[in-house]
């Protein structure tokens, strides 16, 4: 039998070295955008990487730690993007407030879907999330007076901190970094909190968790609410950064699947898995764009698909847990 640290707990001896690692990482992350100041293209890639990591990380809280296989998380992303954009464009409310409003709206929606479907067994939850995002897409396309339909909403270029519009990419980078850190540290908190223990237990076996006094439905709805809110915040930043949102992208199934894929590649139910997955996908995207210049988007999808098949076949738990296991095995061999 192998020793297993499980999804939780860390050994105490690694703490000083770990602390140093964090300081170095923080320094690199802070310095990076300034070093790339004149490399707009790579800064853009970096911002997208962080944004993807934020979304995948938010999905992973519910989908990974909670085992709630949502296939419609674009719903929450879109609600975040549309809420803040509409408030900004129509009512001139700062996107910072809009970001919180979007998070609250998504949280309420998440709670509603959760209460409706998470007491049922079977695939109802996953299907409901797809259905809801399709419904919201149709609403966004057809309610032209409010959303301008498929034309989308433009965010006016009026730089200023209150408007969350900047003439440099660097501020976007730091907002994206913060949004990426949020689900990461939430995941870390889950790994050492009562709520997190309950959640991981529910994912492992619902009936067994109930027999031990855990209100499994409440636990699942709670994590979905947190996950929805964080996904929506990424939506707001996306809208502000790209300066245009459109229903066919913001509520798309492809976007939902992207969040799932990145988490699965990196490893669901781990804090760093989605970050790694986002890194792989961003890297591939960038390289493919360079290599396949002019080729159709379909080819990228083929490469993604192939990558996912390889991961699922050979390292189904995802790259990060697999790598950790290999590392431990190697360390054990060296020690003995």
């Amino acid at each position: 039998m192998k020793e297993e640290k499980g999804a939780l707990s860390k050994s105490a001896s690694a703490v000083p070295r770990r602390g140093l690692g964090w300081i170095v990482l923080a320094a690199v992350l802070i310095a990076l955008p300034f070093l790339l100041q004149n490399e707009i293209y790579y800064l853009d890639v970096l911002i997208f990487f962080l944004l993807w990591a934020a979304m995948a990380g938010a999905w992973n809280l519910a989908g990974g730690y909670g085992g709630l296989l949502s296939l419609g998380h674009a719903l929450f992303f879109g609600v975040g993007a549309y809420t803040s954009s509409l408030l900004f464009v129509k009512l001139h409310i700062s996107p910072w407030i809009g970001m919180l409003a979007g998070a609250v709206a998504a949280a309420i929606l998440g709670a509603f879907i959760g209460v409706l479907t998470l007491r049922l067994k079977g695939p109802f939850f996953g299907l409901a999330t797809i259905a809801f995002s399709e419904v919201f897409m149709i609403i966004a396309i057809n309610w032209k007076d409010l959303t301008q339909g498929s034309q989308g909403i433009n965010i006016p270029y009026t730089p200023g901190l209150a408007n969350m519009v900047f003439d440099s990419k660097i501020p976007y980078y730091f907002i994206a970094l913060a949004l990426c850190a949020l689900p990461y540290f939430t995941a870390k908190w889950l790994e050492r909190s009562k709520f997190g223990y309950r959640l991981i237990a529910v994912r492992g076996g619902e009936a067994a968790a109930q027999a031990l006094g855990i209100n499994t439905v409440a636990v699942k709805v709670t994590i979905l609410v947190i996950s929805s809110a964080l996904t929506a915040m990424a939506g707001t930043l996306y809208a502000q950064y790209i300066a245009i949102i459109e229903p066919l992208h913001e509520f798309s199934f492809a976007l939902s699947v992207q969040m799932v894929l990145m988490s699965m590649i990196g490893g669901t139910g781990t804090a760093s898995g989605p970050v790694f997955g986002a890194l792989v996908v961003t890297f591939l995207n960038t390289v493919l764009r360079d290599v396949l210049e002019g080729a159709q988007g379909g080819l990228q999808a083929v490469v993604y698909g192939a990558l996912l098949v390889l991961v699922v076949l050979f390292i189904p738990e995802g790259v990060i847990p697999w790598a950790k296991r290999q590392w431990r095995r190697l360390a054990g061999r060296v020690a003995s």
Partner: peptide
């Protein structure tokens, strides 16, 4: 069926 992802103590 012990909870997967958790060790004995955590279970």
């Amino acid at each position: 069926k012990p909870f997967a992802h958790l060790n004995v103590l955590q279970n």
